[in-house]
Design a protein around this nucleic acid. Structure first.
Lengths: 115, 115
DNA sequence: CGCTTATACCTCGGACTTCTACACATTAAC
DNA sequence: GTTAATGTGTAGAAGTCCGAGGTATAAGCG
């Protein structure tokens, strides 16, 4: 029962990355671990999804990056949020909330009462 | 400025369709209207998304369809849930809930306290 | 020294959805 | 007869996710 497919819906990954980076500069590998930890292993981000997403966000001007040294004494690329990225985070978070509310309404629609 | 892009994340559409069909046989056009109504115009499903999705679900054996007459006296394809479809609905609904909880945890991560 | 594990970065290609736009058909209103 | 609403459908483009692979450093073990 290892199941627990991550299966993040399209577009959600960007939102989560922006949120983690908003808390302070982090490198890619740490982002994945943080998501895994906070979500209690529900959100698993493969590297093949993570790094392209980071580059996308950087190209869109939502993230900026610098090379620095990690606590373990290794070079890593630390990402931080730009002003534009912070605005985008707000927009996407609001959008996410609106969507989940709407889906909640739909899933809560009454039926016969089989349950 | 009609904004209000639906922009449903991948996979979500299937879940919503299954839920609406679970309430009773309906035809495609009515599904879109129902979603629009219940979600207060948040969930807008273009026809180019709706019909391919219905065919996908039918091919996967989650939906079955019959031609019948609508209240307005026109022929339409009425979809209903198969046993497999009902099981899938349960699985996906649970999956959705698990995911939204996880995302909620992440979005709720404390930071400085700007809020 | 060689082997393995963990950290840390990256790319490529396939597979899948979604959306814009269009085409077709029927019913009703004017 | 022409407009609008209803109702189903396809084609192509665009975008994203993920598996599989590659590079490199550091630390531990036999």
């Amino acid at each position: 029962m290892r199941a627990a497919k991550s299966n993040l819906p399209q577009g959600t990954l960007d939102l989560l990355i922006l949120k983690v980076v908003a808390l302070g500069p982090v490198h890619g590998y740490a982002i994945a671990q943080r998501l895994l930890q906070v979500s209690r292993d529900v959100v698993q981000v493969p590297q093949g999804s993570l790094y392209p997403a980071l580059h996308r966000l950087e190209n869109r001007g939502l993230l900026a990056a610098d090379w620095n040294e990690t606590e373990t004494g290794r070079e890593a690329k630390f990402y931080r949020l730009t002003r534009k990225g912070r605005a985008e985070l707000g927009t996407e978070a609001a959008s996410w909330q609106r969507l989940t509310e709407a889906v909640g309404l739909i899933l809560g629609m009454a039926e016969g009462g089989t349950k």
